[in-house]
Structure formats: C-alpha cells, structure tokens
Simulated assay, not measured.
Amino acid sequence: MKNAFKITIAFLFLIWGFYACKKKSEITIDDQNLTECLQGNCTYEYVNNSIIVNQPMTVMPGQYRVFSAKKENGFSTTTIYFQAPMQGDSFLLTEADILAGKVKHFFSCASCDYYKSTPIAGTVKGIKVKRTNTASEKWLLDATIVLAAENSKIPVDTVYIKQYFNLAVK
C-alpha cells in the first residue's frame, strides 16, 4: 500500500511539473514603427460579430471580428480585410488561415488597368489594447501579407501593416 501511495504522489508531481514548466504562448506586439499613411486617406477599423463575403468590400453579420485597413487616394481604393475570432484578447492568423480566405485584398479603380491580387502567405497578429479612462476599445495589429496575381502562387507584392484599429462607428 505504501508503494502505491508513493507512486501516485510521484506521478502527480510529474504531471504538475510538466504543466508548471510548459511555456505559455503569449502574443506581443510593440507599438514602434507604426504604418504611416503617406498619400491619401487611411482608415484602420474593425467590426464585431461579422464575416467577409466574397463580394468586394462586403461585410455581413457573422461570428468573427473583421478588421479593415483602407487606403483611398484620388484614383483608387485598396482595402485589406482580416477575419479574426471573436474570443480572447489576442489572435494569430497563419499562412493556413490566409489560404483559407480569412484575409482578403481588394483594389478598385474606375479608370485603370490592373490585375486582381490574392493573399498567398504571411501572418497577422493582433492584441487588444487595455482601455484607459473613457477611451474606446482598440486593437493593435501587425500583419505581413504576401500577394500574388489571381490563380498564381508567384509573389508580386508584400503588404506590411502595423497600426491601431478602432471600433467602427455606424
């Protein structure tokens, strides 16, 4: 009986040690070198309980948090959408998530010849920023998105976004 008790205690300590030493995967993003909007008008915002549909620039009610980074100038508009989970105070979208359609890139221009580009690789990290005083909730995202021409896997551009996203006002 004593040996069974000692073995049980040793086993419990072994399990406790395994979980106590296990590293926690915490997502961190520094707020240095934020993306600048050099030309035109840029907006960085998000909506809760939404989903991206395959039509350009269409966000519908759904089960995700959808972030949009939009740049408009005199002749064109570029928008990148990130579809992240609603749960938690941080998230990580991997290349598998990008290939699954959780990142969308849309470019529109009334009078120019262009090709449609598709996200094929990259990562998107996001963390909720702690509220101060009466400031509204916001998120800090750090994204690197590799784009290819539609139906191609050859990279043609890489987009970097590191910016604060505010809740969209409707």
Rank of each mutant, 00 (worst) to 15 (best):
M1Q: 07
K2Q: 11
N3G: 06
F5Q: 11
K6D: 04
I9Y: 03
I9C: 10
A10G: 06
A10C: 06
A10P: 02
L12E: 01
L12V: 08
L12R: 01
L14E: 02
I15Q: 10
W16L: 14
G17V: 06
G17Q: 10
Y19V: 11
A20M: 07
K23L: 08
K24G: 08
K24F: 09
K24E: 14
I27V: 13
I27Y: 01
T28H: 06
T28C: 00
T28E: 04
D31T: 07
Q32G: 08
N33T: 07
N33L: 13
L34I: 06
C37N: 01
L38F: 11
Q39K: 15
G40R: 04
C42W: 05
E45G: 06
E45C: 03
V47Q: 13
N48F: 01
N49E: 09
V53H: 09
Q55D: 10
P56H: 06
T58M: 14
P61F: 10
P61W: 02
G62Y: 07
F67N: 08
A69P: 05
K70P: 09
E72H: 08
Y81A: 05
Q83R: 05
P85K: 07
Q87R: 12
Q87T: 12
G88F: 02
S90N: 12
F91T: 03
T94I: 01
T94P: 04
K102P: 05
V103F: 06
V103K: 05
K104W: 08
H105N: 15
H105E: 02
S108Q: 14
S111T: 12
C112V: 02
Y115R: 09
S117A: 11
T118N: 14
G122T: 05
K125Y: 04
G126C: 00
G126D: 00
K128L: 02
T132Q: 03
T132A: 00
N133P: 07
S136H: 01
K138H: 00
L141Y: 00
A143S: 13
I145L: 04
V146S: 10
A149Y: 13
E150I: 11
V156Y: 06
D157V: 04
D157A: 15
T158D: 01
V159W: 11
V159I: 15
Y160H: 13
I161V: 15
I161A: 05
Q163E: 10
Q163G: 04
Q163K: 12
Y164D: 00
A168T: 04
K170N: 13
